[in-house]
Design a protein around this nucleic acid. Structure first.
Lengths: 104, 104
DNA sequence: ATTATATATCGTTATTTTTCGATATGTCAA
DNA sequence: TTGACATATCGAAAAATAACGATATATAAT
């Protein structure tokens, strides 16, 4: 776990928002899931386009953010056809919190 | 609590090191405390010069780092004469960890 | 008062990050 | 197989951060 990359990924309002939105996708992306049955899409996360729309940043910026967060370990992604769904890596986030609590 | 500033302050190896060194000053700054009685200096934290020496960054950089971490809330400082002692703000750090665990 | 020491601040340059538009790639539908 | 759409990647410009030496400020010692 490269903590520096994790904290860098968290050092941005939009990225922090995305992470928190993904905590409750039904709430923050109510109209998503047109592409796939609800069970699948919510379990799989939220697609880039929906996140981009909500975040008000450009498509390339959001794609870059998501990739950065995934590399840091905070997110994971699944591809369904032409869509990439991003969701939180809860276990990793838990570990970061625990590390911060005990080692920092 | 401005989380962004907290995470920015944590996004640097040297600053992270400093925070961890200050968790156990006796261990990481064994020869410090020449200026003041041990009880006082350890309770009050570690002076800038000792931190600077250990961190191998320039004096101005370390001073800047410490100020940044203090502004973020992670550190607090006390001045004894010409020395400024920095120590961890444990309560704040605990709150950050708790916030990360539950809200992020 | 002068000098020495510790820390803070200033000004500058180098580096990194941010952010975007343009373009490439990959997938689906007609 | 062509066209439409979703996402990723590229390249560049702007903005922010990092890091230093020089200098200022504050305190202490002579």
């Amino acid at each position: 776990m490269d903590l520096i990359d994790v904290f860098k990924a968290l050092s941005n309002k939009t990225r922090l928002n995305i992470l928190q939105w993904l905590k409750d996708p039904e709430k923050h992306f109510p109209k998503q899931g047109a592409h796939l049955p609800k069970e699948v899409s919510y379990k799989g996360g939220v697609c880039v386009g929906d996140i981009q729309e909500k975040s008000q940043a450009s498509q390339s910026t959001v794609s870059h953010y998501l990739n950065m967060m995934q590399k840091a370990g905070l997110l994971e992604s699944v591809r369904y056809g032409q869509w990439t769904y991003y969701r939180r890596n809860e276990e990793f986030i838990r570990q970061v919190a625990e590390y911060l609590r005990t080692e920092i």
